[in-house]
Amino acid sequence: MSRFFVCALVMMLVTYLVRAIPFTVFRRKVRNRFFRSFLYYVPYAVLTAMTLPAALYATGSMAVAAVGLLAAAVLAYRGRGLVVVSLASCAAAGLATWVIHLLG
């Protein structure tokens, strides 16, 4: 087998097992209060940690990213759904890019 296939196989296996094993093994509801609370907070903690500060550097311009993120936050606060918030964030950032281009 060529080196590429060995490497691709290793990548696939490690990535898959790290995902699937805990998900498959943990089947019962957690009873421990601390651990249950911990798991309740994990999604919000993970998503926030992935967004800040990484998102500010995602577009190559911090101002453009900030406009997009702010638009997303305002619409999300007003209760808009995932698709709307997500696409509006891109649209606002696109608009900001264009404005900066005009000014610059």
Binding site: Y44, M50, T51, L69, A72, L75, R80, V85
Partner: peptide, 12 residues
């Protein structure tokens, strides 16, 4: 930004 916008739509 689509992905980050979605994260915000979940957390906010």
């Amino acid at each position: 930004l689509a992905i980050y916008g979605m994260f915000i739509a979940i957390v906010v």
